[in-house]
Design a protein around this nucleic acid. Structure first.
Lengths: 130, 130
DNA sequence: CCTTGCCTTGACGCTGACGACAAGGTTTAG
DNA sequence: CTAAACCTTGTCGTCAGCGTCAAGGCAAGG
């Protein structure tokens, strides 16, 4: 399988695949004319990468999962290093959820305040019971 | 007040203040020698900007709030445009919270799966009741 | 032979909010 | 006279994950 076909099957671009390779995540063989040649296993690797990136992982976080797949495991998350990353990411997400919840609360407060201010202004201009 | 003093009082850098000015958010006068001169009102403007950026706003989102302050309002969020931005941001945050919650759920599932897999492997190697 | 359609490497662009540095002017204190 | 401590504009670097050319090689069909 050449790079174009893999890109199509994995739902990415050739640029992306070369980028992953430059960062050591994908390792194609080379044919006589220098073309990259991928086997089916690489398709699963690329899909794993994509799935993790979509969830908010960085390329560095993805490495243990790829190594785990390459080690012959059916899924990339059963190895100790992957589990460590999963725990760390879960903690990060929990943290972010907390902060985002606080932000949401603040936004609601500001909105309430702004609306209240508008009501008050309207009341002063057009008193309902003079 | 010169740029250094404002930076110190607002808890930012001079670079940041020039950056805000380049993007039309802050408008100092100039003294005879070309130095930027700020009055007290600009300090409040800069603090408003900082507070909103900390919450995840972009510079463009901040503009209505600054205009609102400049229009003489006690707080930057009581003007219609500011309220629009607040509503939009709140919706964005809600969206993000949803996605992040889904991600968190997926991470927990993956972790559970990985742990279960490890248990199973251990059981096969060291059966508890042969 | 020429076009079409793959593939190669290399290098710049993009987003956002600045940090860091260069090269120089101004003012004050010693 | 000079050093210190301000200020000015201008430009490049940062982080991440690519997009988007550029310039060219290789293979097959008409």
């Amino acid at each position: 399988m050449l790079i174009g076909e893999l890109a199509e099957r994995a739902g990415t671009s050739t640029r992306t695949l070369r980028y992953y390779e430059a960062h050591g995540l994908v390792r194609p063989r080379r044919s006589a004319n220098g073309y990259r040649v991928y086997d089916e296993a690489e398709l699963r690797v690329v899909r794993e990468i994509r799935a993790l990136l979509d969830v908010g992982f960085g390329l560095d976080d993805v490495r243990p999962f790829v190594a785990c797949l390459r080690a012959g495991n059916a899924s990339g998350d059963v190895c100790p290093d992957s589990v460590l990353v999963l725990r760390r990411k879960l903690a990060e997400v929990d943290d972010y959820l907390d902060r985002l919840t606080a932000v949401r609360q603040q936004l609601r407060t500001q909105l309430t305040h702004a609306i209240a201010h508008r009501e008050e202004t309207c009341l002063r201009r057009r008193p309902s019971a003079p």
